Simulated assay, not measured.
Amino acid sequence: MSGPEDRISSTLAVYLTEQFFHTYQRKPSASEIRSWERSIPQVANALKGTVLYSTDAETRAKLRELVEGEAPAPAVRAGHGA
């Protein structure tokens, strides 16, 4: 039986697969998907207790940029907050 971490990894791997296809117009390889499934729990454990739980808007914007690959808003880039 799979635990919550396995379900989360599987769900995120599905999301990453969809986004990969959307971005590159091709499916990722099976080994790439397996790599995501194996690394997601390790990344989640590393992030526990970090800025993920921050209420600071600039910190959240920086994290969103890191995780989602979004460019920060011009004010955040210039160091003026969100």
Rank of each mutant, 00 (worst) to 15 (best):
M1N: 15
S2M: 06
S2N: 11
S2A: 01
G3Y: 10
P4Y: 02
P4A: 09
D6E: 08
R7V: 09
I8L: 04
S9G: 09
S9E: 11
S9D: 06
S10R: 14
T11D: 14
T11F: 14
T11E: 13
T11W: 10
L12Q: 10
L12W: 15
L12D: 03
A13W: 07
A13E: 13
A13P: 05
A13N: 06
A13V: 05
A13L: 02
A13F: 09
V14A: 14
V14Q: 14
Y15K: 11
Y15F: 15
L16Q: 07
T17A: 07
T17Q: 05
T17S: 09
E18S: 09
E18D: 07
F20A: 12
F20R: 06
F20K: 04
F20P: 01
F21D: 11
F21I: 12
F21H: 11
H22Q: 14
T23E: 13
Y24K: 05
Y24H: 06
Q25I: 15
Q25C: 01
Q25K: 06
K27M: 11
K27N: 07
K27E: 05
P28C: 04
A30I: 14
A30C: 12
I33M: 08
R34D: 08
R34E: 02
R34H: 06
R34G: 03
S35R: 15
W36F: 12
E37N: 12
E37R: 13
E37K: 04
E37I: 12
R38N: 00
S39W: 10
I40A: 03
I40F: 07
I40E: 01
I40P: 04
I40H: 04
I40K: 05
P41F: 02
Q42W: 12
V43G: 08
V43M: 09
V43D: 01
V43Q: 06
A44G: 08
A44K: 13
A44H: 01
A44M: 14
A44F: 11
N45G: 14
A46Q: 13
A46L: 12
L47V: 00
L47I: 03
K48Q: 06
K48H: 09
K48I: 06
G49S: 10
G49W: 10
G49P: 05
T50M: 15
V51C: 08
V51I: 02
V51W: 07
L52T: 02
L52H: 04
Y53T: 11
Y53S: 09
Y53D: 14
S54G: 01
D56E: 15
D56C: 00
D56Y: 01
A57Q: 12
A57F: 01
A57E: 11
E58D: 07
R60G: 00
R60M: 01
A61Y: 04
K62S: 01
K62G: 04
L63R: 15
L63P: 02
L63M: 14
R64G: 02
R64M: 07
E65F: 00
V67H: 06
E68Y: 06
E68V: 13
E68G: 05
G69N: 10
E70T: 09
E70H: 08
E70A: 07
A71P: 13
A71I: 00
P72E: 13
P72D: 13
P74Y: 01
A75V: 10
R77T: 12
R77K: 13
G79W: 03
G79E: 06
H80W: 05
H80Y: 12
G81M: 00
A82M: 00
A82V: 15
